[in-house]
Amino acid sequence: MKQTLTAHVGAPGFGKTERRDAWWLEPLLVVLGFATFVAYSTWAAFQVSNYSYGPYLSPFFSPYIRPDWWPANWSTAFFVLWIPGGFRASCYYYRRAYWRSLFASPSACAVSEPKRDYTGETGTIARWLPILHRWFLYLSLIVLVWLWIDVVKAFDFDGHFGIGVGTLVMLINVALLSFFTLGCHALRSLVGGNARCFSCAPGGNARYGMWSFVSKLTQRHKLWAWFSLFSVGLTDLYIRLCAMGVLHDIRIV
């Protein structure tokens, strides 16, 4: 199906457009958002202390894994971070964001892009993204269970039920992470989207129910992607500042 079809658009060049709105603003904000998070999370991941305080554990270090052979002065965050990192890097929303903002492919709709040899998601690495996303979804669901366990533990103050500001911070964080993870497009397909006919498929009503629930979250995937990204960083920051003695965690109950 080779097609010869001469377009009006001549030779491409970055940023060629008749658009008059601030089309460059969104990619710029995305780059700044990514850069802020990557800079902070990389720094935090290399830290070997202050990742827990009282019953609170930083989400960067959960599930907490420290084998005996692991050197004491090496961070354990790397046992975990590749999972949410891979999940986000292969996520459909983040792909949209970085294809536009980092690779200018294109930076915005109807704005020309710098290079012509476009391969999209058929390239050597990019063709694996949808496949990897499915793998990372399964792993992220396991991590999500651990994060909920951490929240339950955050109500336990030396054997007594309690609620601190940190408990609420962790609860909000895991709720946002759940909205993001459970709104995954791959999960949407898995729970029911791949059925052609809900009522004809085995367990069709249940699958339709799950698909409808996931679909509601999927419609706001961008929102949950950003909220959960920053909530993870801010939760780590809150626990770290408490552990460093900069902040005092207030007990509500």
Partner: peptide
């Protein structure tokens, strides 16, 4: 608006 079609001159991709 699809950039796959829009910015490929002469011969469009498959």
């Amino acid at each position: 608006v699809c950039h796959v079609l829009r910015y490929q001159t002469e011969e469009k991709p498959q």
